[in-house]
């Protein structure tokens, strides 16, 4: 970073620290905070979409679909999320490659599982082995997002399912009395009204999602936990900046980061709740009206 950092061995004190904290490795560490935020911002809408589909399936009139929806919702209740994070990316990766293998190489006569090898034809590789590095990285990240979306989609489905039930029956009946079809009632009455009931659950869900992001590290994505461990470990003179075991400090920094993130989110959500409660026929809405009067 600074020109004077060319020879770290000759530095000491604050200058050494300044050079140390701006080394290429540290820059990668700072960038990984961005990775975490991007994951959060990408996963949230995908999970919400999964949740919406799950909730709709659980309310469906078609029996198998309803079973599927209910089973999906019940799934995260019984099984720890970390098991999904370990399982889903591998299963998806092998599943996608297997499907592409069936489509692209129908005359391939070798078995896909040879002993412990999982071999598909080169054209079925995901991503193709000739793809540039960023495609590989993007693919790994996308698998991680999907794993998160599957788990948090089930949480969201539970919240939305509850919220749909909480919409007053009279509202639905009024819609029907106006001669709306089932589809119209769903989109024009139920969906617009359910959000205020879903908000407390969704805000809680967002907090859980934040607190699950360090698990990215287990998926092999180079996130902040990966770099904190890598940078914090003691370094011998094989490295330009030798130092003893500093992992405690790096993890303290991560703790502060997460506390800030959850705290800020909480403030934003409480504002949002206030705004959404405005004019609603709920206790919170009444309180707002009284406060203004």
């Amino acid at each position: 970073m600074f020109a004077s950092c060319a020879d770290p061995g000759s530095l000491d004190g604050a200058m050494w620290l300044a050079c140390y904290l701006t080394s290429g490795k540290h820059m990668a560490f700072y960038a990984s905070f961005g990775t975490v935020l991007v994951l959060l911002l990408v996963t949230a809408p995908v999970a919400l979409a999964c949740g919406f589909a799950g909730a709709v399936a659980a309310r469906s009139d078609i029996l198998p679909l309803r079973w599927f929806g209910r089973a999906y919702i019940a799934m995260v209740r019984g099984i720890p999320d970390i098991a999904f994070f370990l399982f889903v990316p591998i299963a998806l990766d092998q599943g996608i490659e297997w499907l592409r293998h069936q489509v692209k190489c129908p005359d391939w006569d070798l078995p896909v599982r040879q002993g412990s090898d999982f071999v598909v034809c080169p054209a079925a590789k995901m991503p193709l082995s000739s793809a540039p590095q960023w495609v590989h990285e993007g693919y790994g990240f996308a698998l991680a997002v999907l794993a998160f979306a599957v788990v948090f989609g089930a949480f969201a489905a539970n919240v939305l399912f509850g919220a749909m039930r909480a919409v007053p029956r009279a509202q639905i009946e009024t819609g029907e009395a106006y001669g709306m079809s089932g589809r119209q009632v769903f989109w024009r009455i139920l969906v617009p009204q359910m959000w205020v009931f879903a908000l407390p659950g969704l805000s809680n869900l967002w907090q859980i999602l934040i607190k699950a992001t360090p698990l990215l590290f287990l998926l092999g994505v180079e996130d902040i936990v990966y770099w904190a461990r890598e940078l914090g470990g003691s370094k011998t003179s094989a490295f330009s900046y030798p130092h003893p075991d500093w992992r405690l400090y790096y993890f303290l920094a991560l703790l502060v980061f997460y506390l800030l993130l959850t705290h800020v989110s909480e403030m934003v959500f409480s504002r949002l709740t206030r705004r959404l409660s405005h004019g609603q026929a709920t206790l919170a809405g009444d309180a707002l009206r009284k406060a203004q009067a």
Partner: peptide, 11 residues
């Protein structure tokens, strides 16, 4: 298995 795909140097 774990799609541990991580940038290093492109050579």
């Amino acid at each position: 298995m774990k799609p541990a795909i991580v940038a290093a140097t492109i050579l």
